[in-house]
Amino acid sequence: MTIQIFLFAAAIVALLAIAALGRLVAGPTIPDRAVALDTMNTYVVGLMMLLAAAYDSVVMVDVAIVYAALSFVGTMFIARYIEGEV
């Protein structure tokens, strides 16, 4: 029963990530697309954490932490590029 709850939550997060993908493609401005990309990265980290809890996988938690750190660095680089500082 518990794994079904985690998988249901993971399916909802996956649908939200697909909606953010739509904003990434259709975003009217570059900053809107950058925010959509950051939102998708956040959803992916949440999805990894939900699946790690559902399948009791410690390795996936480590992967999610590294992905979140790299996502943060990437978002900061994109923001600096948009401002024209890079």
Results as ranks from 00 to 15, higher is better:
residue 1 M to S: 12
residue 2 T to S: 07
residue 2 T to V: 14
residue 2 T to W: 03
residue 2 T to I: 11
residue 2 T to C: 06
residue 2 T to L: 13
residue 3 I to T: 13
residue 3 I to L: 09
residue 3 I to G: 00
residue 3 I to H: 03
residue 3 I to C: 03
residue 5 I to H: 10
residue 5 I to V: 13
residue 6 F to G: 02
residue 6 F to D: 00
residue 7 L to K: 04
residue 7 L to R: 04
residue 7 L to V: 02
residue 8 F to S: 14
residue 9 A to Q: 09
residue 11 A to T: 10
residue 11 A to W: 04
residue 12 I to K: 03
residue 12 I to G: 06
residue 12 I to V: 15
residue 12 I to H: 03
residue 13 V to I: 15
residue 14 A to K: 07
residue 15 L to E: 01
residue 17 A to C: 11
residue 18 I to V: 15
residue 18 I to H: 00
residue 19 A to I: 15
residue 19 A to W: 00
residue 25 V to Q: 06
residue 25 V to T: 08
residue 25 V to H: 04
residue 27 G to Q: 12
residue 27 G to I: 03
residue 27 G to W: 05
residue 28 P to Y: 07
residue 32 D to C: 05
residue 33 R to D: 08
residue 33 R to K: 12
residue 33 R to I: 13
residue 34 A to L: 12
residue 34 A to W: 04
residue 35 V to G: 03
residue 35 V to Y: 07
residue 35 V to E: 08
residue 35 V to L: 12
residue 36 A to K: 02
residue 36 A to I: 04
residue 37 L to R: 06
residue 37 L to V: 11
residue 37 L to G: 02
residue 38 D to Y: 07
residue 39 T to S: 14
residue 40 M to T: 14
residue 40 M to G: 14
residue 40 M to Q: 14
residue 40 M to Y: 10
residue 41 N to S: 15
residue 42 T to L: 13
residue 42 T to R: 01
residue 44 V to L: 15
residue 44 V to Y: 00
residue 45 V to M: 14
residue 45 V to F: 08
residue 46 G to M: 07
residue 47 L to N: 06
residue 47 L to H: 08
residue 47 L to K: 08
residue 47 L to W: 12
residue 48 M to T: 00
residue 48 M to N: 00
residue 49 M to H: 05
residue 49 M to W: 13
residue 49 M to I: 15
residue 50 L to I: 02
residue 50 L to M: 11
residue 50 L to A: 09
residue 50 L to P: 00
residue 51 L to T: 02
residue 52 A to D: 06
residue 53 A to V: 04
residue 53 A to P: 00
residue 54 A to H: 01
residue 54 A to E: 00
residue 55 Y to R: 09
residue 55 Y to A: 15
residue 56 D to K: 09
residue 56 D to G: 02
residue 57 S to V: 03
residue 57 S to L: 11
residue 57 S to N: 13
residue 58 V to M: 11
residue 59 V to D: 13
residue 59 V to F: 10
residue 60 M to E: 03
residue 61 V to P: 05
residue 61 V to Q: 08
residue 61 V to S: 07
residue 61 V to K: 06
residue 61 V to R: 05
residue 62 D to R: 05
residue 62 D to A: 10
residue 63 V to A: 12
residue 64 A to G: 09
residue 66 V to N: 05
residue 66 V to M: 13
residue 66 V to W: 03
residue 67 Y to A: 01
residue 67 Y to V: 08
residue 68 A to P: 09
residue 68 A to R: 07
residue 70 L to D: 11
residue 70 L to K: 04
residue 71 S to H: 10
residue 72 F to Y: 13
residue 73 V to M: 10
residue 74 G to D: 11
residue 74 G to Q: 11
residue 75 T to P: 00
residue 75 T to G: 01
residue 75 T to C: 05
residue 76 M to D: 03
residue 78 I to F: 12
residue 82 I to D: 01
residue 82 I to K: 01
residue 83 E to N: 07
residue 83 E to C: 11
residue 84 G to Q: 11
residue 84 G to C: 09
residue 85 E to H: 06
residue 85 E to C: 06
residue 85 E to T: 15
residue 85 E to A: 14
residue 86 V to F: 07
residue 86 V to N: 03
residue 86 V to T: 09
